[in-house]
Design a protein around this nucleic acid. Structure first.
Lengths: 119, 119
DNA sequence: CTGCATCCTTTCTGATACTG
DNA sequence: CAGTATCAGAAAGGATGCAG
């Protein structure tokens, strides 16, 4: 049995609660990819549909609505025919940037590691 | 229509691929909570089941197997009756720490924001 | 172009009970 | 103590079609 001195009761739970909240807002396969796409510039529905690998219209539509409800993105309708709708990231959405950077860093390292293992 | 000068083709995809990989490894509701629990010290099955709010034995068991397969955690069996099994985080699992810190920071801010809005 | 409605399949989760 | 088996419901996801 290894040492257990690292264990501090209560600390763990106080970390778990905020993280659970964050995970809820970012839940699902597509919210972060959508936010990343928008972090590279405002986009229209069709542009995102093309840019994000494998996402379907249905999921894109659904996730955009959730992200808007959480105020992470903004939807702007321009009066034109045919309709033009532009999505942009809000300041609040942009506050996820450091998190996204870390995810990118770890994902890159993980990718290399996978490559190395013949796979 | 707002400016679009932030858009750089290809950049977005090169960011999306590693992140998609990362999200796959961390997918689901429970993997990060489990890793966080273990980051506070080695734990036994029952300890984690008590410490992580709302997780069921079934999910804990399933997620532990996946985390072990991805080499983020280590399972050690001690020869005793009744059985003693200890889980610990690997160096590779520990490399998720910066990501977890960011998640915690954002989650904490998000939590405050939610509180502020009457809710 | 935008994006919802419908239908269907797959995957995920929870509850409960049970074994070594 | 440390899980696994089973069942059922919920949620996520895909395909297609169509309307504003």
């Amino acid at each position: 049995m290894k040492s257990r001195e690292g264990h501090e009761p209560g600390k763990c739970l106080s970390m778990l609660l905020p993280i659970t909240d964050a995970l809820e807002v970012l839940s699902g396969k597509w919210k972060l990819p959508i936010l990343i796409s928008l972090s590279f510039g405002n986009k229209r529905f069709g542009e995102m549909a093309k840019e994000i690998p494998k996402i379907t219209d249905r999921m894109l539509s659904k996730e955009l609505r959730e992200l808007e409800a959480h105020q992470l993105i903004k939807r702007t309708v321009y009066d034109a025919v045919p309709a033009i709708v532009e999505y942009s990231i809000t300041d609040y959405g942009a506050s996820l940037d450091p998190l996204i950077q870390e995810l990118y860093k770890w994902g890159s390292r993980h990718r290399k590691r996978m490559m190395a293992k013949s796979h």
